[in-house]
């Protein structure tokens, strides 16, 4: 009787200890793995090529078209010279790939190496392992992106010969943060697939399928769906606007679209609204003329998009967490 009562009491109090016991051991081990691994070498080369290519393209454009501009530096990230896309466009495509390459084998890799049951037999909870792996990937991604960011600013300093203005730097910092959080969504997504699929290759394919879907098909689908949901019958302006609204609302389910909107507002101070004003969000230059907005206003403009990205990351991580807690860990 008393033993039973004690157990009930223990049950009410839940598990012993902190769910984060061992978290930092996992984070440090995983980060060390990332930073010394081959995939990091490949990423570095990719990053370097991208940065140099994009800066070169932007630089030639800047020399040709622009004289004095307080936000000259931001142009480095947004100008493009056909056929090379601007650096921000490139990031919209590349960051998901980097993120996916970091976590697509997070959990199933432990299964296939047969290390999972040995690690979970140590005095830690699954919570610490999963979150530790996510944090390590997140920090690694942040590190990689910060390096590229510094690289471009360095190249820009050399090429343009002028340092960025104070507000310019603030905007560049927000840009970096947003890019890191954009990557977070894809980290969490690939991690969920690494829990769902036992084969790392399958998880990678599934992640890439989602990436491709949002990169190419979702915009097309959003247009088609908007046409069905809110058709333009008489060609009235209200109808056209209503349809565009629906289309944008749908397009916002894509993290790439959200990222594009954020970039548009942050890197182009002249942008005074996102959404309707920006059907091509990844090419923000020269959309609406006028005096530049202060950063706080620009931020306010895309605050929902920003929180949307973070919320998506948290939701995906929570999904992975639930799936992982229920998973049988035997090899």
């Amino acid at each position: 009787m008393t033993a039973n009562a004690r157990q009930l009491e223990a049950g009410r109090r839940g598990r012993e200890g902190s769910p984060w016991t061992g978290l930092w051991a996992v984070v440090f081990k995983e980060m060390a793995d990332y930073l010394t691994g081959t995939r990091m070498r490949i990423l570095e080369i990719l990053i370097l090529l991208t940065a140099v290519g994009a800066v070169y393209a932007a630089m030639t454009q800047i020399r040709e078209t622009i004289g004095r501009d307080p936000f000259l530096f931001l142009k480095l990230f947004t100008l493009s010279k056909s056929p090379i896309p601007s650096f921000v466009e490139f990031l919209g495509i590349l960051v998901p790939l980097i993120a996916i390459s970091l976590t697509f084998d997070a959990i199933n890799g432990e299964f296939s190496r047969r290390t999972l049951s040995r690690v979970l037999a140590q005095p830690i909870y699954r919570d610490a392992l999963l979150f530790g792996k996510f944090l390590a990937a997140f920090f690694t991604l942040a590190l990689v992106l910060t390096v590229i960011w510094l690289l471009i600013i360095g190249l820009g300093l050399i090429g343009l010969g002028v340092p960025p203005s104070g507000p310019g730097i603030a905007r560049l910092l927000v840009f970096l943060l947003a890019t890191i959080f954009y990557g977070g969504v894809w980290l969490a997504l690939a991690m969920v697939f690494s829990i769902v699929f036992r084969q790392p290759a399958t998880a990678a394919m599934a992640s890439l399928a989602v990436w491709l879907f949002f990169l190419i098909f979702w915009n097309i689908l959003a247009g088609l769906l908007a046409n069905v949901i809110s058709p333009v019958r008489l060609g009235l302006p209200q109808e056209i606007i209503a349809q565009a609204r629906v289309q944008i609302a749908l397009a916002r389910f894509s993290p790439t679209f959200l990222y594009g909107e954020i970039m548009a507002a942050i890197l182009n101070p002249a942008v005074k609204m996102v959404g309707l004003g920006l059907l091509l969000p990844i090419q923000p230059q020269g959309s609406i003329p006028g005096s530049p907005l202060p950063l706080s206003q620009s931020l306010l403009l895309v605050w929902p998009q920003f929180t949307g990205l973070i919320a998506a990351t948290i939701l995906l991580f929570a999904l992975g967490y639930v799936l992982f807690q229920r998973q049988e860990i035997r090899a």
Binding site: Q7, A10, G11, R15, E16, G17, T21, R114, S117, R118, A121, Q122, P123, I124, Y125, R330, A331
Partner: peptide, 14 residues
């Protein structure tokens, strides 16, 4: 209920 205490004292070779 006390997995951490158990796993700190018991070694497991899967």
């Amino acid at each position: 209920r006390q997995p951490l205490s158990v796993k700190a004292r018991v070694g497991y070779i899967p």
